[in-house]
């Protein structure tokens, strides 16, 4: 519902500009909160130091926007580079490996709302947002099988476990989404 409301306000402003009627939303940022169901307005000023439209612009032509938007967090830990492919298993390989591994522990690092949609039998939920190997209750001797929705978040968790001394780690390549396609056709996709 939210995009409907916001898109209609956008349409209204376009039409007002064309008709040159009313007070256009220039210099004002309208904030809409669907949960509180309120609108707020804050002032937006032209910044004299703006690199594009300010007094001494440094952006005088189009730039490399991919590079401009690729900002790392300064001071943040750079994740360890590992050979990710060595830990990836296709859904069928992942299932076969678990079936043959008596010490297998299956960890789902998605968030709770995703867990409620579907999950792999036998999995334990440890959301990445609060994932900490030290308090996970996992034993570095365990064989830990990890999955998420598409396989990226579980790789992040895998790297943290590796750093914490875990040795037997596997990641479900393509996540539960690909699992639903290739292993469990009854599982819903979202």
């Amino acid at each position: 519902m939210l995009p409907g409301v916001v898109g209609l306000i956008q349409a209204t402003e376009v039409i007002k500009l064309i008709l040159d009627e009313g007070a256009p939303l220039i210099g004002r940022l309208l904030l809409y909160d669907a949960m509180k169901m309120n609108f707020k307005e804050v002032r937006v000023r032209k910044d004299p130091e703006c690199v594009l439209c300010g007094d001494n612009p440094s952006v005088t032509e189009l730039i490399d926007y991919k590079a401009f938007c690729d900002i790392p967090i300064p001071g943040a830990e750079v994740p360890e580079k590992i050979d990710e492919a060595a830990y990836e298993l296709s859904p069928q390989e992942f299932k076969d490996a678990m079936d043959q591994d008596p010490s297998a522990v299956l960890i789902d690092v998605r968030e709770n709302y995703e867990w409620e949609i579907c999950k792999i039998d036998g999995a334990q939920l440890l959301p990445l947002s609060s994932f900490d190997p030290a308090t996970s209750g996992l034993d570095p001797e365990d064989s830990v099988y990890l999955y998420c929705y598409k396989g990226k978040r579980s790789m992040q968790a895998l790297k943290e476990l590796k750093k914490a001394g875990f040795k037997n780690l596997k990641n479900l390549s393509g996540g539960i989404d690909l699992w639903a396609e290739e292993v469990d056709s009854d599982m819903p996709q979202y």
């Binding site: 707020k40 804050v42 002032r43 937006v44």
Partner: peptide, 10 residues
């Protein structure tokens, strides 16, 4: 951005 009573603190 941080707005104090609807204006930017900048």
């Amino acid at each position: 951005n941080v707005y104090l009573n609807d204006d930017d603190i900048r």
